[in-house]
Design a protein around this nucleic acid. Structure first.
Length: 418
DNA sequence: TCTGGGGTCCTAGGACCC
DNA sequence: TCTGGGGTCCTAGGACCC
C-alpha cells in the first residue's frame, strides 16, 4: 500500500522571521517580494486583516499602518538556511524524500507500519522543537492526494495540523474542497471545469478521465487518476539538472546609464553562472534582456548570442551578455529591470569529451572552483569581476530586512542574561 | 514614487524531409 | 476530376507550480 506525506511550513517566510524575533509572535506580519514590491507571505493575523497575497505593497501600506502590521523585506539568506535545516529534520522520517520547494517536501512512507496520523504528529513536534517552525502534514496514497490532505490539515483546526486520508475521520473529505484547490488546477482550468459542473475535488475525481483528456489534455487526465489513488507522478529524489537558468531583477530606481546597466547585468550573470556550475553544467546560448517598465510589463527586448563552445566561465558569459546589452541599449531610455538566461545547457562531463568543442581548460576550471569556494565561505560577491562595480546605485530596495542571523557571523543574535 | 523571480510540461502548427 | 502519408524538429503560446 503506497503512502506519501507532504509536509510544508505555514507562512514560512513569516515563521522564519519569528524564529529570531519573538516580538513578531501573535502580531500581523507580512514579508515583501524583492524591491519591497508585493506581499508574498502573511501571518494569519495579517491575513485576517484582509491583506491579499500578491498585493502591491504601496496599496496595503495605509491599512497596514493603521493596524500596526510589521513588514519585512525578503531575507533569502535566512529562509534558505532554515529551509535546509527543515529538510534535514524531515529527512529523518523516511529514506526517500523529494524536496519540492523552499518550504515543502514529499516523504515516501510506503511499507512503514506507523499509525500515519501519529507519525505526522511526531514530525510536527520535532520540527517545532528543533527549529521553531510550524508545519502541516498531509498523507495520502498519491502525491496529489497528499497535497489535498495537507490542504485539509490547514483548513480544519481540530485536526491539529495532520490529515491522513483514509482515516475514518470523514465520509468524503474531498467534497469539502473546491476544485481550484487541487494541485495542478489553476484559475483558468477551474473556471472551465465549473462550466462543466465540476465544482469540488470529489466531482473531479468522479469525472470521466477520457473525456477530460480530450478537452484538457493528458495533464488533466493524470490528475483525475491521481485523485482516484492511481499514481501518475513519481517521487523525484534527485533533482534533475535544470534546462535553463535565469537571473534577473528589477532596479531600485530607473537606470539610463550604460555602465550601470552593464554592471547590473554582470551581477546577474555571476549569479546565473554560479548556479550553472553548481549543477555541473556548461551553457552554449546566452540571452540578455532589458525591460523598460515594470507594469504593465511589456515584452522585454532581448538578444541572443551562441558561444563558440559551451562554458561555465563567468568571464566569458559576462563578455557575451555585455555585448548583447550594448546592442540593446538606447541612450535616454529608462530601464527598470535586466536579466540573463543561460540556455543549451550540457553536463560538464560530456563537454570534456567533445574534442571539437573544447570546454573550459583545466586552469579556468581550477580558477572557477576557487572563486566558488571563496564566495561560499565569505559571502556572494566577495570575489567578483570589476565590471560588477561597487556602488550599485540601482540595487533593489530592501528597506526592512532582518539580519542574516544564521549565515553571517556579525549578525549572530546575542542573548543577554538578567 | 510604489506591481517579484524563478521554473516545468504540453500542444498545435509550420517547415522540411522522404 | 484530381490534391498521399508519415516522420522529425522547432517554436510559440498556454497552462501550471512555488
Amino acid at each position: 500500500m503506497s503512502a506519501i506525506a507532504l509536509i510544508d511550513a505555514n507562512h514560512f517566510y513569516v515563521a522564519c522571521e519569528r524564529v529570531f524575533d519573538p516580538h513578531l509572535e501573535r502580531r500581523p506580519v507580512v514579508v515583501l517580494s524583492n524591491n519591497d514590491g508585493c506581499v508574498v507571505a502573511r501571518s494569519p493575523e495579517a491575513k485576517a486583516l484582509g491583506i491579499p497575497i500578491g498585493a502591491p505593497w504601496f496599496r496595503c501600506r495605509e491599512l497596514a499602518r493603521r493596524h500596526g502590521v510589521v513588514a519585512r523585506s525578503s531575507n533569502y539568506a535566512l529562509y534558505g538556511d532554515l529551509s535546509a535545516r527543515l529538510m534535514a529534520v524531515l529527512g529523518q522520517f523516511s529514506p526517500r524524500q523529494e524536496v519540492y520547494s523552499i518550504d515543502e517536501c514529499f516523504l515516501d512512507l510506503a511499507g512503514m507500519d506507523h499509525d500515519p496520523t501519529a507519525y505526522g504528529q511526531a514530525m510536527r513536534q520535532r520540527v517545532h522543537q528543533w527549529l521553531g517552525l510550524p508545519v502541516c502534514v498531509g498523507i495520502g496514497p498519491t502525491k496529489t492526494l497528499a497535497k489535498l490532505a495537507n490542504r485539509l490539515a490547514k483548513q480544519e483546526p481540530d485536526w491539529d495540523g495532520v490529515c491522513a486520508l483514509g482515516a475514518p475521520a470523514l465520509a468524503d473529505p474531498l467534497a469539502r474542497l473546491d476544485v481550484a484547490t487541487v494541485w495542478g488546477i489553476g484559475p483558468r482550468w477551474a473556471a472551465r471545469l465549473r462550466a462543466l459542473g465540476i465544482e469540488t475535488a470529489r466531482d473531479l475525481r468522479a469525472a470521466d478521465p477520457k473525456t477530460l483528456r480530450r478537452r484538457f489534455g493528458v495533464t488533466m487526465e493524470r490528475i483525475v487518476w491521481e485523485l482516484r489513488g492511481v499514481a501518475g507522478l513519481e517521487l523525484a529524489e534527485m533533482a534533475p539538472p535544470q534546462h535553463q537558468i535565469i537571473a534577473s531583477r528589477s532596479f531600485g530606481r530607473p537606470v539610463s546609464d550604460l555602465t550601470e546597466l552593464q554592471s547590473a547585468m554582470a551581477q546577474h550573470v555571476a549569479r546565473a553562472a554560479e548556479k550553472l556550475r553548481r549543477q555541473r553544467s556548461h551553457a552554449r546560448l546566452v540571452q540578455a534582456f532589458v525591460g523598460l517598465d515594470r507594469f504593465p510589463s511589456p515584452a522585454p527586448t532581448a538578444g541572443l548570442l551562441r558561444l563558440p563552445a559551451p562554458t561555465g566561465d563567468t568571464a566569458r558569459l559576462t563578455a557575451a551578455a555585455g555585448r548583447l546589452v550594448a546592442a540593446l541599449y538606447r541612450p535616454g531610455a529608462a530601464y527598470r529591470r535586466a536579466g540573463v538566461m543561460l540556455l543549451e545547457l550540457t553536463p560538464v562531463a560530456r563537454a570534456q569529451e567533445t574534442l571539437w568543442e573544447p570546454a573550459d581548460d583545466d586552469r579556468t576550471a581550477a580558477r572557477l572552483a576557487v572563486l566558488d569556494r571563496i564566495n561560499a565561505r565569505w559571502g556572494r560577491g566577495t570575489l567578483r569581476l570589476a565590471r560588477e562595480g561597487f556602488a550599485q546605485p540601482w540595487a533593489m530596495r530592501q528597506d526592512c530586512r532582518s539580519p542574516a542571523y544564521t549565515t553571517r557571523w556579525a549578525d549572530l543574535p546575542v542573548a543577554r542574561a538578567g
